[in-house]
Design a protein around this nucleic acid. Structure first.
Length: 576
RNA sequence: GCCCGCGUAGCUCAGUGGAUAGAGCGUCUGCCUCCGGAGCAGAAGGUCGCAAGUUCGAUUCUUGCCGCGGGCGCCA
């Protein structure tokens, strides 16, 4: 904990106990009238039936802020305005600097957590719809790991179900080798569409597909061999996308639906043993209370279809069993689009009815909105198709390369390519991460690649320029660390306070699984650095001491930007 | 019909039970021989969808309504 607001808050809490005789939230918040303000006096006075200003005075007398605040004043009806002591801020900054995580505290309790994200479908193209889930999930994984949790990534790919009948038959028609080539090249849409077209147009093909599904589910070894080709080629393709995108997912994280096949009968069995499985319209279902259908009748979660087959609900239940009983996790994050909200509510309800999840187990639907075009409709390519993720990546890098060539023509070709990659990918990711995930967001190339405003290029540029200060100074950043930092200007002070808020920013981001909070923080930090850089000459500082102090502030800022962007899965170029 | 989410400046978006609601872009007026303009200073622009309620205090919480999007039994 390095945020002065948190530190002062806990000090205030003890004073509140002294005055109130019980725990009371001091409600300490950052303030624009001082560094922080204590808002908890008014509600406390109300509950004590006392005059607020009187209570405020008593509180101030019991508040030991020696060494943390240089000024404490009561204002208005009973607010207490606090001004932090500069020495205190600088001590905290030094502590943060020498800490492992730049002041960010470890989680109070380290948990085992599954993060379920990305989830593309085998033999189907990855498109913009997969972008958000992949990027948000990856950022959450990085942050949770950062604060000390044990994170298990799970990529729940769609590798099972009726479409595989037609896909396998199409594979046979095309020939295994050329089909594999087609898939590994990434022409998944073409493959899927061709299969689909035949399925729709040709009754004998449809029959073959139907029979193939049966033998797939029956475990026919030849069919499984063919199925594995589809899965292997698809996942190989997914991996190339993940690598280009710079996300953590690998084959080790694959947890396709097929993986849970053996568990499905057990799910049914255990629900039946629990006495909550019912028969309805020929299907075996569970009715979690409170869910109604169109006609205001109880809405079931279908465990086993009328034809004896299983569906996604069963698989998801099996997943929960596996995660809780085998992986021993207590928290499951589902980074999945918001349209599936009701499904996850029912899933949670059924797991609790079944007793699989207890009071300490949590399943959180980390829901996110859709990616829209400028017309506010689902983003589509010109021909009305979904936009392929790889094409999006290509275009981002192309556009970034053009911007870099324009901004810094001096860069060598290979440097430019590398920087363009970092900027392009960063821009896409940041655009996705920087707005509240629950809302739909409007995809706009010009905005996300702008060097002004709350964008990745702006933040990356801020980082690169700080690096350039050191190149120009001819100073080794590492060698500088540990030395004195001074506050001689309000802009330096504001920057120090902001640097200390990194802890809170990460904490709030994790608490709400909302990466945009961290984005806002980095942007504020960059803005504060700009004000500092504008007002406080660094290389031309009046004295060597001041120059070094300011270089240290620049260094710290760059470290935090780099680390924070890293937590979002975004790289920080040193030149651009 | 029922349920869920969203509705903040012209546009894209932050934000909060507290004392004058913020940013970027766009618009307008100035400024700077600046460590790479990520420029700087200022102006205009908002009944925080509408209406009640809870509260000392609501844009934030509750309810109703309006608008938009999504979901609502054998797809995932």
């Amino acid at each position: 904990m390095s945020d002065p607001v948190s530190i002062v808050s806990s000090l205030a809490a003890t004073a509140f106990v002294a005055v109130a005789g019980k725990n009371a939230d001091p409600i300490v918040r950052p303030s624009d009238r001082a560094d922080a303000q204590i808002n908890g006096v008014l509600p406390l006075a109300k509950s004590l039936g006392r005059n607020p200003r009187e209570v405020a005075e008593e509180l101030v007398s019991k508040l030991n802020l020696e060494g943390t605040c240089s000024k404490v004043e009561i204002a208005g009806p009973g607010f207490i305005n606090l001004t932090f002591d500069d020495g205190f801020l600088l001590r905290e900054l030094q502590k943060a600097l020498t800490s492992e995580r730049l002041g960010v505290g470890a989680a109070e309790v380290s948990r085992r957590i599954v993060v379920d994200y990305s989830a593309p479908n085998v033999a189907k193209e990855m498109h913009v719809g997969h972008l958000r889930g992949t990027v948000i999930g990856d950022a959450l994984v990085r942050m949770l790991q950062f604060v000390g949790h044990t994170v298990i990534r799970e990529n729940h790919i769609g590798d099972w179900g009726t479409p595989f009948g037609m896909l396998i038959e199409h594979l046979l028609d095309v020939g295994e080798t050329s089909a594999a080539d087609e898939l590994s090249l990434g022409d998944l849409n073409g493959f899927y569409k061709a299969a689909r077209a035949k399925f729709d147009a040709d009754d004998t093909f449809k029959e073959r597909a139907r029979l193939r599904v049966v033998s797939l589910q029956g475990g026919d070894s030849e069919t499984l061999r063919l199925w594995r080709i589809l899965v292997a080629e698809s996942t190989r393709y997914f991996n190339t996308v993940y690598q280009r995108l710079g996300v953590l997912l690998t084959d080790d994280d694959l947890a396709g639906e097929s993986k849970y096949n053996d568990l499905l009968p057990k799910v049914v069995e255990r629900l039946r043993d629990k006495g909550i499985l019912e028969e309805s319209d020929g299907a075996e279902v569970v009715f979690p209370p409170g869910f109604l259908n169109r006609d205001n009748e109880p809405l079931p979660m279908i465990i086993r279809k009328g034809d004896g087959g299983y569906n996604y609900a069963t698989t998801d239940l099996a997943c929960v069993l596996d995660r809780i009983e085998r992986l021993q996790v207590s928290l499951m994050l589902y980074v999945v689009g918001s349209p599936q909200a009701q499904h996850f509510q029912m899933l949670d309800a059924v797991c609790r009815m079944a007793g699989w999840m207890g009071d300490t187990d949590e399943a959180v639907h980390v829901a996110f909105g859709s990616v829209l075009g400028s017309d506010r409709k689902m983003l589509k390519s010109r021909d009305g198709d979904t936009v392929k993720l790889v094409e999006l990546i290509d275009e981002a890098i192309d556009r970034a390369a053009a911007a870099v060539a324009n901004k810094n023509p001096e860069l060598s070709e290979s440097e430019r390519a590398n920087v363009a990659r970092m900027i392009g990918i960063g821009a896409i990711k940041y655009a996705d991460l920087s707005t509240d995930r629950i809302k739909d967001y409007i995809f706009d190339w010009d905005r996300m690649l702008a060097f002004e405003g709350n964008t990745a290029p702006y933040l990356q540029y801020a980082h690169a320029r700080i690096c350039s200060i050191f190149r120009r100074a001819g100073v080794d950043r590492g060698a500088l660390r540990g030395g004195d930092i001074a506050i001689t200007h309000p802009a330096e002070r504001a920057l120090v306070i902001r640097l200390l808020q990194f802890d809170t920013a990460v904490g709030e981001t994790i608490e709400r699984y909302s990466p945009h909070r961290l984005c806002t923080y980095i942007y504020d930090l960059a803005t504060d650095f700009t004000a500092f850089y504008e007002n406080c000459p660094v290389l031309k500082a009046e004295t060597d001491e001041l120059r070094e102090s300011r270089l240290r502030l620049a260094d710290t800022t760059a470290l935090v930007i780099n680390r924070a962007l890293g937590l979002l899965g975004i790289e920080s170029p040193e030149v651009m």
